[in-house]
């Protein structure tokens, strides 16, 4: 207990907690839309595809400035999302295969570049491999401000475009009929998704970033049937996972942050799946039992009469 108090009094830890809290919030919010748009795994591909972007940015500028690295990650992230959509729309290859293909090839390219970075005299100290699993502890104050600012902007944009995103998610054809610029909104949404992934990779890592998009969102889905409530709940679950995961990983030496955030989020999901009223497994089982009983009783009565 003491160690937790000690940790919380540390200024850098406080910053990191604020950062992961905002990150969890933003990814919970955008993840809800991604889930309903069935684009959850595109987030996974984008996260993996961020690796080559980070490496290229580092190789070009030779310095580890977070903003520069994030710009690199954004470019390759967007490129990967575009490639997936292009492959799906122009060939018989289905989306899952396209996602897998792009994810692994971009990641392979990233690994190639990473080996080159590590051969540089400055590369060994670059700490770029922290991006693979996330190392929240390595985040410094200035990085947190970038992260927090970006996360806040993402949430803000999503909030003002809430009803537009809602209608293009639920019924794109209808949205077209309303005269909404579908193409632009889709592009904007993918950009926001890439944005949140890119912001998150330093804390959670490229491989596990997808969890922060998916897990809080489906956990939230169990508690409500309203989109706006789902997004709020998902944002809270995400924020909670971010904070708890960061605290656990800060307790030990060199523990990666991402995996603990993911485990926390999954625990919330399992609890939701089992115990949520109405939609939870246990509640559903009970209802089904009652219904079968009624059905059987009605059946026997029917035969008698």
């Amino acid at each position: 207990m003491n160690s937790i108090m000690l940790m919380l009094s540390d200024a850098n830890t406080q910053w990191v907690l604020v950062g992961t809290l905002l990150l969890g919030l933003a990814s919970g919010v955008l993840g809800s839309f991604a889930l309903l748009r069935k684009q959850s795994l595109i987030g996974d591909a984008v996260a993996h595809a961020a690796l080559p972007g980070i490496c290229i940015a580092f190789l070009l500028t030779g310095e580890r400035s977070l903003i520069v690295l994030l710009i690199g990650a954004t470019i390759t992230g967007l490129l990967s999302a575009y490639c997936i959509q292009y492959i799906v729309s122009s060939t018989i290859i289905k989306e899952d295969t396209a996602i897998c293909l792009i994810l692994s090839v971009f990641f392979g390219f990233g690994i190639v570049l990473l080996t080159k970075v590590q051969q540089l005299p400055s590369g060994n100290k670059s700490g770029l491999d922290a991006f693979i699993f996330g190392q929240a502890a390595s985040i410094v104050g200035s990085d947190v401000k970038v992260m927090a600012g970006a996360a806040a902007i993402l949430v803000f944009i999503t909030a003002i475009l809430f009803k537009e995103f809602k209608v293009i998610t639920f019924d794109p054809e209808f949205a077209k009929g309303l005269g909404l610029p579908i193409g632009f909104l889709n592009f904007l949404f993918i950009s926001l998704l890439v944005g949140v992934v890119v912001v998150g990779i330093q804390a959670v890592g490229v491989i596990l970033m997808a969890a922060l998009l998916i897990t809080p969102a489906i956990a939230a889905r169990y508690w409500t049937n309203s989109l706006s409530k789902m997004i709020v709940i998902s944002g809270m679950f995400g924020a909670f996972s971010g904070v708890v995961g960061t605290m656990i990983s800060a307790l030990g030496q060199g523990l990666p942050t991402g995996p603990f955030i993911v485990v926390t989020a999954t625990a919330i999901f399992v609890i939701s799946m089992l115990f949520a009223p109405e939609r939870g497994i246990i509640a559903k089982k009970i209802k089904q039992k009652i219904y079968y009983k009624q059905l059987n009783e009605a059946g026997t009565k029917g035969r008698v009469s």
Binding site: L35, A211, I214, F260, F269, M273
Partner: peptide, 27 residues
Amino acid sequence: SSGIQEDASIGVVFTFLFAIGVILITI
């Protein structure tokens, strides 16, 4: 089969099991 769409089911399961693997390795 409990009603979660397939891509999301995959996303939850693999990130969780992989995270456990990474944690075990580091510990």
